[in-house]
Design a protein around this nucleic acid. Structure first.
Lengths: 220, 220
DNA sequence: TGTTTCTAAAAAATCGATTTTTTAATAATA
DNA sequence: TATTATTAAAAAATCGATTTTTTAGAAACA
């Protein structure tokens, strides 16, 4: 599906981008922290050029701040910004999920069912590393909206998820909320297959608001 | 306002970014064209490192496409993508302008009035270079939405304007449509000051649809 | 004491050269 | 003739060294 016949070589720049992105989302760096480039160089064992290219990309996508002649800095967290992100997520994801239900075909249905199932299994499995659950979770939401037919909407929502996760992943776990959120994922699959746009739109809103309650703890 | 007491030195990377961005928006490169990095190097007379950093940033913001080990390419134009951009612009800018009218203060009113006036004067002046009009036009729309209180919304709208301009600036001029669009800018100021959200929201929609008719000519 | 000026160290940005990968042209094979 | 290897040239990516700018601390000054 994604793989062409050619193996497709990766670049060091791309690899360090992926690693840095993960570490930034997971809060390995303090919010507001200045990134010392020569430290990163030794820490990740990469050359200066690929590292700087990765940092430039991360800054362009909003995961870092760049200031001329004084390098890169991890953006601060603020309640105000989180609210902004949450409000936009609700608007955009409600639009997207509505269109996704209108346009989704049989292939989308089965991909959604599969993604939902994997996520459900992962929620039960206590031995699974957190980053694997995170990947399945991201994938589920991605598949849900994938049939909305708007690449720019998907792109923006993806960027908002990245920003949201900077907050959420730093917040302490809350098992009660977690189980409600897991149930909501199941319900989403149900409503999606039933093409109940009103129900799923409302549910998406609640899902975002509930997870934002957890995320909120990271800015105080 | 924007200037600190310190003069703030620029970087070559930042300068080449600005120049390349302008040239990409203005259609100096063909859509789909592969960018030969060593050509750019001599063409713009810059070193490899700042050039590559600029290209990486442009790719992250969607003005270029990046493919591992085979450099950078100017994205193709398609009617389908333009429609996507237009539909999202309408949704987001209607939201933003509504909030802008709710939150705009006296300072915003005067900045909007000033930006509208400068744009009107520029429309009449036939000797004004096109890129100066473009700057005033961008600035007007930026000011109009600046009081909407959502930095992420502004960011996404800015990105959509960039993408939209890739189409619009390649399309042939249409003086009739142009004058209607100019009148709409005037009306926007009027409705904004009157805080007539229903009227301005409708007008914004018409403005985007009308300018998209012009832009459409660039993909056939 | 508080401000400004100077300066050495640190950090960021840039350069030129090298390595790696892709591309495109040619030859070999079925 | 069509497909697969081969390989030399071109392009992309990376490296290590150099230049430029910022930063932080000491000294001079008011």
């Amino acid at each position: 599906m994604t793989s062409n016949s050619v193996p497709r070589a990766e670049t060091k720049s791309g690899r360090i981008y992926d690693v840095l992105r993960e570490d930034l989302l997971n809060g390995e760096f303090k919010a507001g922290e200045k990134l010392a480039i020569s430290n990163l160089r030794t820490l990740y064992n990469v050359g200066l050029s690929p590292l700087r290219e990765a940092l430039n990309r991360l800054a362009a996508s909003g995961l870092l701040e760049q200031e001329d002649q004084r390098g890169f800095r991890v953006p601060k967290l603020s309640r105000k910004e989180l609210e902004d992100i949450v409000n936009l997520r609700i608007e955009l994801e409600q639009m997207a999920v509505t269109k996704a239900l209108e346009n989704g075909d049989a292939d989308w249905e089965s991909r959604l069912l599969a993604a939902g199932h994997r996520l459900k299994r992962a929620a039960v499995d206590k031995t699974l590393p957190i980053h694997e659950w995170e990947a399945l979770h991201s994938h589920f939401h991605e598949v849900l909206l994938s049939s909305c037919q708007s690449t720019w909407m998907i792109r923006f929502i993806h960027q908002l998820h990245e920003q949201f996760d900077r907050y959420r992943r730093r917040a302490p776990r809350n098992p009660d909320v977690r189980s409600t959120l897991d149930e909501q994922h199941d319900l989403m699959v149900k409503y999606a297959l039933e093409r109940d746009t009103a129900a799923i739109s409302q549910l998406v809103r609640e899902h975002i608001l509930l997870s934002s309650q957890v995320a909120l703890a990271s800015c105080e």
